[in-house]
């Protein structure tokens, strides 16, 4: 059992409704693909949106794993100036 806490930024927060997202997960570690599935399941409008994932304040792509205590952030591009 693991609590995963994610921060969402910018326009993504319009979809998630909050800048802090919390998930309870039965496993102790989840893969990138599993994380994305969880997110899309709870927030279908995230599908196809442009954003990067940061794990422990580092942008990541491809395969990675999220475990207890990790910081995950969902970062879209910003437009305003």
């Amino acid at each position: 059992m693991m609590e995963v806490r994610l921060m969402s930024y910018g326009a993504l927060t319009d979809i998630t409704g909050s800048g802090v997202l919390e998930f309870s997960i039965p496993q102790s570690v989840i893969s990138a693909a599993e994380l994305m599935s969880l997110l899309i399941e709870r927030y279908p409008a995230l599908e196809g949106k442009t954003f990067r994932i940061a794990l422990n304040e580092r942008f990541v792509t491809g395969e990675f794993e999220v475990g207890s205590g990790d910081h995950v952030a969902l970062m879209p591009p910003f437009s305003g100036g």
């Binding site: 910018g10 326009a11 990067r52 591009p77 437009s79 305003g80």
Partner: peptide, 18 residues
């Protein structure tokens, strides 16, 4: 290197909209 391509038209609002 962060965002290789622009988001879709209308996906991200600017200040006038948001």
């Amino acid at each position: 290197d962060i965002f290789p391509n622009p988001p879709g038209q209308g996906e991200i609002q600017n200040c006038a909209e948001a």
